[in-house]
């Protein structure tokens, strides 16, 4: 067996090679070097975050919420996160924080609604913030940070309705669940309000297991919509939607004037490859909402139940100068109208 030394050595060499290129990751506050602070002490304000089965760098709501937590950092504040790898670990991961007597725990995503409520009941002194978790019944120490996605979708649709030249626009969504349905509904209503002749193509990802991470699929759908004449695509479904944005950016780079609209957070920052087309994002102000609620926890003013976070459109960035002033004014009016209730969506 001449190949023996090679086969033994290969995995080890591979390991060493990989070891060389790994960057450092992890929590912002400490590694193993600094001792964790005692969260049961009144001097220390401890905030924990549990992601759903995604990671804190998912360019989507986990990341936005984590940024909201990080915004609280300062003296006497300790922040940490756990990324959930298995949907059955929600309770166990929450318990790691409650055992350490964390003051506030942020749980991200509707999938954790039940787990959060259960943990809250077991730990009445800890405050829980459930991002995207609508509270059917009020639990005293749980605040659901919820967003009327339809409103954000409406504003995005309205803008698209004004900008389209072909009167065809599209939306590429993740799995068909209430948040994506709301985005799609608002988008359609908004675009029709701005432009009655408009037609909207919409498509949900059909699979259950990778509906929010299938960027090639999203890209393909966008490609098809563009070929059928759509000139604005709204990508609303995590990685799947990001794939759509990327495809529009690629085609728009080829000389045509196309737009894409991001979702959840200002994707100008998270999906740089979409810059050539990313006119704005239908934003849920997740980061702000999380920070606001954490501040309320800190000053003791937080209440159980649902807290409506703000929605709106992100900045136009590079497109600010390119958009007609008239369009910008109209959109600003609509956003304002939604905010103050003069425009009712749905």
């Amino acid at each position: 067996m001449k190949a023996k030394p090679f086969l033994i050595a290969a995995p080890a060499a591979l390991a060493l090679a990989l070891a060389g290129c790994g960057g450092s990751t992890g929590n912002s506050t400490d590694g193993s070097s600094t001792a964790p602070k005692d969260c049961s002490s009144a001097d220390v304000f401890c905030i924990g975050l549990v992601t759903d089965t995604g990671s804190v760098d998912d360019k989507s709501f986990n990341q936005a919420a984590w940024e909201g937590v990080k915004a609280m950092e300062g003296d006497g504040v300790q922040t940490k996160y756990i990324e959930t790898k298995d949907a059955k670990d929600y309770a166990a991961n929450l318990k790691q924080f409650t055992d350490q007597k964390y003051d506030a725990i942020v749980t991200v995503g509707f999938l954790m609604t039940e787990a959060t409520q259960t943990a809250a009941k077991a730990n009445p002194t800890t405050k829980f913030i459930g991002v995207d978790q609508f509270q059917e019944a009020t639990v005293e120490n749980v605040t659901g940070l919820v967003f009327p996605e339809a409103n954000a979708g409406y504003a995005a649709g309205y803008l698209a309705g004004l900008l389209t030249k072909t009167n065809k626009i599209g939306v590429v969504l993740g799995q068909e669940i209430p948040p994506t349905q709301n985005y799609a509904k608002g988008y359609e209503l908004g675009s029709k309000a701005a432009n009655p002749k408009i037609s909207v193509a919409k498509v949900y990802h059909p699979a259950g297991d990778n509906a929010f991470s299938d960027s090639p699929w999203g890209a393909g759908e966008a490609k098809k919509m563009l070929a059928q004449g759509a000139d604005i695509i709204f990508g609303a479904g995590g990685g799947t939607g990001n794939g759509a944005l990327g495809e529009v950016a690629k085609t728009s780079g080829a000389g045509t004037s196309l737009y894409c609209i991001g979702v959840d957070l200002d994707q100008w920052d998270t999906v740089p490859e979409a810059h050539p087309c990313l006119v704005t994002s239908a934003e849920k102000k997740l980061t702000d909402g999380t920070t606001d609620l954490l501040k309320q926890v800190k000053d003791g003013s937080i209440k159980g139940g649902n807290f409506n976070g703000k929605t709106g459109l992100a900045a136009f960035h590079d497109f600010d100068s390119k958009l007609p002033a008239e369009v910008k004014t109209k959109v600003a009016d609509v956003v304002k109208g939604i905010e103050d209730g003069t425009i009712k969506v749905g």
Binding site: G218, N242, G246
Partner: peptide, 9 residues
């Protein structure tokens, strides 16, 4: 097809 990498792509 895209310009991004996703886990389990």
């Amino acid at each position: 097809a895209t310009s991004t990498f996703e886990r389990g792509m």
